[in-house]
């Protein structure tokens, strides 16, 4: 059984979807295709099923928040890290999402493993994945407000206790009783 010749992902996607790619970036050996959000699912399907590409595994979905002064097309970025076991290489798809409406189509139809990875991004970063089969919160309790991994969400630490401020902190700290 011979393996078909490997294709350059950027060129292949450009040929199949001329409008889809905004930018192609290379850094430290990682290739990033910056896509228009509306093309994401179609490009993902294409990358998975085309001979010479076969990105059959979705390694990771990670969302990043560029708040406050972002010099990027949108406040949020969502990176999809694909892995091709056949050609032993990785590829990153990236979409930028606007601050007021961070919505993108789900890729659970392409890789079922995206299910929880997207739920995590939805819970912690507040990215809305349209068409997701199960959009409950994953990590935080159901009644939690806000999305903790956004940059404008405070880390929420407690002041370190010293003898001069111990009394003040203990006044606010809940204490358990029998």
């Amino acid at each position: 059984m011979s393996i078909p010749q490997a294709l350059d992902p950027a060129a292949a996607v450009k040929a199949a979807f001329p409008d889809a790619i905004d930018d192609v970036r290379e850094y430290a050996g990682d290739t990033t295709l910056v896509l228009k959000p509306e093309y994401l699912v179609r490009v993902a399907q294409y990358l998975r099923d085309t001979k010479g590409l076969v990105y059959n595994v979705l390694s990771d979905v990670s969302a990043v928040d560029y708040w406050p002064d972002y010099n990027r097309p949108g406040r949020f970025g969502v990176s999809y890290h694909l892995l091709s076991m056949l050609y032993r290489r990785r590829l990153r798809l990236k979409v930028y999402l606007a601050e007021d409406e961070p919505t993108v189509e789900t890729v659970t139809g392409v890789w079922p493993g995206a299910n929880w990875l997207e739920r995590e991004a939805q819970d912690l970063m507040g990215i809305d994945f349209k068409g997701h089969p199960d959009s409950r919160r994953l990590m935080m309790p159901d009644d939690w407000q806000g999305h903790p991994h956004r940059r404008d969400y405070p880390l929420g630490y407690e002041t370190v206790m010293f003898s001069f401020n111990a009394e003040e902190i203990m006044k606010h700290k809940p204490r358990a009783t029998e």
């Binding site: 969302a63 990043v64 990176s79 493993g113 929880w116 990875l117 940059r151």
Partner: peptide, 24 residues
């Protein structure tokens, strides 16, 4: 997944962990 800021602290770090996928 590590994203720098240009400064001394990362902008975002995300771990894709095997247990997470296996439980899912």
């Amino acid at each position: 997944y590590l994203h720098g800021t240009g400064g001394t602290k990362p902008r975002r770090i995300h771990f894709k962990t095997p247990s997470f996928v296996h439980i899912s």
